[in-house]
Simulated scan of single mutants.
Amino acid sequence: MRQIFLDTDTTGLEHKLGHRIIEIGCVEMGNRRLTNRHFHRYLNPERDIDAGAMSVHGISREFLLDKPHFADVAAEFLDFVRGAELVIHNAAFDVGFLNAELALLDMAPVDTVCHAVRDTLRMAKDLHPGKKNNLNALCERYGVNNSHRTLHGALLDAEILAEVYLAMTRGQESLIMDLGDDNASRLKAAGSLPPTGDRKTQHVRRASPEELEVHEKILTTIQEVSKGKCQWLRSDTNG
């Protein structure tokens, strides 16, 4: 699978208010390995940048005056992402801005050009409900080094997101068994096992007496309806 990890920086928070993209950063991954191919452009938005936005990414309008406009790079950008799965943190924000820019050029939305869009913020909320799931929080949770991230930068954030995504989707790490020293060392070298310090204690929640009573009533009902063919009661008897 070809995936593109994407991030943008903008002049403000609402493209519906006329805010524009000022930076696009993309890194390519194939079969869960970075390919070292990337797309990165600063863009002249032809408008002022909100003070709040500038405090986040540190990019000034003066810096962007000699940079290309989105129209100058749109075709090249679409060629880079064409047919790939876009992986974006808070995808609605970036896709909204990209589609607004493309609409100004009478071009098709980006999600009709790429294969699909995956939102890692939604993934993180499903995996870690009730917790902070911004990129910094995920870096801390998964042990991804982001010490060089003092300000937001589209290309840097796309690279960090790729590392976080690999950590979030490495499902086999939750099935750690005693494989012996040789096998464990080989799998760890291949990136299939996390460091020992990353392993978390699994807590087993036992059913309460009330829950067990309800469970027994349900099994009895199933036994009556199935005329004695309740597999769970058979298992309990045989076990």
Results as ranks from 00 to 15, higher is better:
residue 86 L to W: 02
residue 86 L to P: 03
residue 87 V to A: 10
residue 89 H to A: 04
residue 90 N to H: 10
residue 91 A to I: 01
residue 95 V to W: 02
residue 96 G to M: 05
residue 97 F to L: 04
residue 98 L to K: 03
residue 98 L to N: 01
residue 99 N to A: 08
residue 99 N to D: 15
residue 99 N to W: 04
residue 99 N to S: 09
residue 101 E to Y: 01
residue 104 L to P: 00
residue 104 L to F: 03
residue 105 L to I: 08
residue 106 D to S: 12
residue 106 D to R: 09
residue 106 D to G: 09
residue 107 M to D: 02
residue 108 A to S: 13
residue 108 A to H: 05
residue 108 A to C: 05
residue 109 P to K: 06
residue 112 T to I: 00
residue 113 V to S: 01
residue 115 H to S: 15
residue 116 A to W: 09
residue 117 V to R: 02
residue 119 D to P: 06
residue 121 L to S: 04
residue 123 M to R: 09
residue 123 M to L: 15
residue 123 M to W: 07
residue 123 M to N: 05
residue 125 K to H: 11
residue 126 D to R: 13
residue 127 L to Q: 14
residue 128 H to K: 04
residue 129 P to F: 07
residue 129 P to S: 06
residue 130 G to L: 06
residue 130 G to P: 04
residue 132 K to W: 10
residue 132 K to S: 14
residue 134 N to H: 06
residue 135 L to G: 03
residue 135 L to M: 14
residue 136 N to H: 11
residue 137 A to D: 08
residue 137 A to H: 09
residue 138 L to C: 10
residue 138 L to F: 09
residue 138 L to A: 09
residue 139 C to M: 08
residue 139 C to V: 09
residue 139 C to R: 08
residue 141 R to K: 14
residue 141 R to E: 07
residue 142 Y to G: 05
residue 142 Y to F: 14
residue 143 G to H: 10
residue 144 V to A: 06
residue 145 N to G: 03
residue 146 N to Y: 01
residue 148 H to Q: 11
residue 149 R to C: 03
residue 149 R to I: 03
residue 151 L to W: 07
residue 151 L to C: 04
residue 152 H to L: 05
residue 152 H to C: 04
residue 156 L to P: 00
residue 157 D to G: 00
residue 160 I to D: 00
residue 162 A to F: 03
residue 162 A to V: 02
residue 163 E to R: 13
residue 164 V to W: 00
residue 166 L to W: 01
residue 167 A to S: 11
residue 168 M to T: 05
residue 169 T to I: 04
residue 169 T to D: 11
residue 172 Q to A: 06
residue 175 L to P: 00
residue 176 I to G: 06
residue 176 I to R: 13
residue 180 G to K: 07
residue 180 G to Q: 07
residue 181 D to I: 03
residue 182 D to K: 11
residue 187 L to M: 14
residue 188 K to Q: 15
residue 188 K to R: 15
residue 188 K to Y: 13
residue 188 K to A: 15
residue 189 A to Q: 14
residue 191 G to V: 09
residue 191 G to I: 08
residue 191 G to D: 09
residue 192 S to V: 09
residue 192 S to T: 02
residue 194 P to A: 14
residue 195 P to D: 14
residue 196 T to K: 13
residue 196 T to V: 13
residue 197 G to I: 13
residue 198 D to T: 11
